[in-house]
Amino acid sequence: MDTDKTFKTRFNGRSITVETVSVGQTVALGTMPKDENGDLASGGVMTILLVVEGCVGPDEWALIRDGLARKTVSIEDVMSLFGKILEKSAKSVPGTATSVEIPGTFKAVSAE
């Protein structure tokens, strides 16, 4: 698991420990499917739920899923938790390549 940070937050009246978004999860969120209008497609919501599951861990996710089934937890509660996770994360994908200049020109072109 490529995690480097955890934080505590309140969820459904309890204090839970959550991991911040990993770089891999940032890639998953950055490649969420969009429809022809550029809006998030239905598969995107699934990605968000999987990211929350990955951040809270299997035990806490089982409780959340149970709460969703019993309607003691709403999808808005989960989205609010996702928002808190993003707030604490603020991470970008690291770059690996450097700029290259086209020969015979002064124009520098970023390769990353």
Partner: peptide
């Protein structure tokens, strides 16, 4: 395959380094 990779990254069963 793309969808599987995205889901695995989201769930942390696949790491950025492996990708």
């Amino acid at each position: 395959t793309r969808e599987t990779i995205r889901e695995s990254l989201a769930l942390r069963t696949l790491t950025y380094e492996e990708l």
